[in-house]
């Protein structure tokens, strides 16, 4: 799956799973998903669990290791890399 197809799907997943009231296209590819960064989404640990559940439902990928999850959820770019690595 290439970036042109995967990134919009991942952004759609984030917005839908977390019930965010934003346009998925407005999420910057490299912006941090978690934390207090001004250009990030400011997600928290409960959102992280929702992303884990969403990834399993949408892509059939399980995230069981916290360390792996923290790296994968750094940004949309990182999440796409993680999904591709699991699909390979």
């Amino acid at each position: 799956m290439d970036d042109a197809e995967l990134k919009p799907r991942v952004k759609e997943l984030i917005v839908k799973q977390l019930k965010l009231d934003i346009d998925p296209a407005a999420i910057a590819d490299s912006a941090p998903l978690f934390g207090e960064s001004a250009d990030g989404l400011g997600l928290d640990s409960i959102d992280a669990l929702e992303l884990v559940l969403g990834l399993e439902k949408e892509f059939g990928i399980k995230v069981q290791d916290e360390e792996v999850g923290v790296k994968a959820f750094a940004s949309v770019d990182a999440l796409c890399d993680f999904i591709r690595s699991k699909a390979a």
Binding site: S45, I46, A48, L49, E50, L53, E56, V63, E66, G69
Partner: peptide, 10 residues
């Protein structure tokens, strides 16, 4: 249990 990530459990 629907899911768990670190210490957060649904």
């Amino acid at each position: 249990m629907a899911g768990q990530f670190a210490s957060t459990v649904k």
